[in-house]
Computed example of a mutant assay.
Amino acid sequence: MSQPESPPMPIPFFDGHNDFLLRLMKSPAPREETWLGTSAGHMDLRRMKQAGFAGGLFAIFVPPVPDGSPPPDFKTLMAEPPYALPLPPEMDHATAQPTALEMAGLLHWMVRAAPDDFALCRSAHEIDAAMESDRIAGVMHMEGAEAIGPDLDALYLFHDMGLRSLGPVWSRPTIFGHGVPMAFPGTPDTGPGLTDRGRELIRLCNELNILIDLSHMNEAGFDDVARLSKAPLVATHSNAHALCASPRNLTDRQLHAIRDTGGMVGFNYATFYINADGRADAGTPWEMMLRHIDHLIETLGEDHVGLGSDFDGCVLPDLIGDVTGVQGLLGAMSADGYDDALIAKLARDNWQACLARTIG
């Protein structure tokens, strides 16, 4: 009797953005359950290992401070375009820092809770070494720089803790610049660019080899970073505006600027940045996802596109569902004619090369 075939090994992949730290911080379950794999959400250690998740950028994101009124139901509002959602006001660093420090601490705790399976990495060499030893390579990212005060001193502190990637803005404004609104339809041309402090922040990020994430930044701010920064331009989790007219997506002009610096774009799985009508629709098919990936490859080149899931921070297509569904996306690429070498680039190789060029 012949032996049954073993299931194929998952293709290892690197993820440009997730919001697991926010879920870990807010979860009512014990954090061991949330991290080690017995609670809901898009990802945890057990499923990441099962899925082939080789590494990723783990976002510190400080959510809006409750003001006593019910928060907007973003997912419901974004299910029925057109929409223009209210955004919270600017948050000062004294308000943001305690939460940001708590989340940074949680990322360090994740290493202590699973030292044989997870590593906090501060360089491309450490990322490669973690992957070679079958440990997930975690990189500390910050989505919105509210926790960095006007004197920028806190950036040194977070850098010492492991921060290697920073988005100066989320969708709300900061003292550094302006994010795009949660609206559809719209363009990223929504207001002024970087402030004087924002320009100082970009220079210091270059000095410290901190990747500057252009996701969420408006067009004028994007252009300011492109003029100032000496590093490749990177958008960790954004899609093509030509296919979905969300202000969060990148125009072809912006994609060309990223290409010309040897930068990178991570394809975002959020359905409201994929569907042509801007709808948050869990029924989004593979075809719509592959259209964006095809467009990014055509506009940027195959060496400058990767994955940027937005896990635990968005409405995913049911076809993906959670981190274990990424192999389905890679399988859809194969079925659409992508060869093994290209899939390896999109899944992991391009991110490894980009991080070597940015964080060193």
Rank of each mutant, 00 (worst) to 15 (best):
D151W: 02
A226T: 06
V139A: 05
I136K: 04
L163I: 09
I212Y: 05
E143M: 09
R203S: 14
L194K: 00
L157A: 14
P173K: 04
P150A: 06
R172P: 15
F184W: 12
A226Q: 11
G221C: 06
R164S: 07
G162S: 13
I136M: 08
S229W: 06
R197P: 01
V225L: 05
P185L: 07
S171E: 02
F184P: 03
V139L: 14
W170V: 02
N206D: 15
L155S: 03
C205N: 05
I210P: 04
D213V: 08
M161F: 15
E132F: 08
G167P: 11
R203Y: 08
R164K: 12
N206R: 09
G167D: 07
I212M: 08
P192H: 05
Y156P: 02
H159I: 06
L228N: 07
P185S: 09
H159T: 14
L166Y: 06
E143I: 05
D189M: 10
C205H: 04
H216T: 04
E219R: 09
G167C: 06
G177V: 01
G177L: 01
S229K: 08
A183E: 15
V169I: 07
A147K: 00
G138K: 02
D153S: 13
A147C: 09
E219K: 09
G149P: 11
G144K: 00
G193F: 01
P181A: 10
E132V: 09
F176P: 00
D151C: 08
R199C: 12
L166I: 10
V169Y: 00
A154R: 13
D151Q: 10
L155Q: 03
A183M: 13
P173D: 11
T174K: 00
I210E: 05
E207F: 04
G198I: 02
A154D: 15
G193P: 06
H141A: 14
Y156M: 10
L211N: 11
T187M: 11
A183L: 11
E146Q: 12
D153M: 10
L163T: 08
L155N: 01
H141S: 15
G149S: 14
M140H: 04
D224H: 07
H159A: 12
D153W: 08
G149L: 07
L155F: 04
F176R: 00
E207D: 15
L214S: 09
F184A: 05
M142D: 07
M217F: 13
V180C: 03
T174S: 14
C205M: 10
R227D: 15
E146N: 15
A183C: 14
S229C: 13
L157R: 11
L201K: 02
S171H: 06
H178Q: 15
V139K: 01
A147S: 12
G144Y: 00
M161W: 15
T187G: 13
N206C: 10
V180M: 01
N209K: 13
D134R: 14
G167Y: 01
G138L: 04
T174R: 00
G193A: 05
P192A: 10
L152A: 08
E200W: 00
P173M: 04
I148C: 05
R135N: 13
Y156C: 11
N209W: 05
G138T: 09
R172K: 13
T195M: 02
T190H: 07
H216I: 07
S133G: 13
H178L: 06
T174H: 02
I210W: 05
P150V: 00
I175N: 00
A145N: 03
D189G: 09
L157E: 13
N206P: 12
R197H: 15
R164M: 07
D196K: 06
R135Q: 14
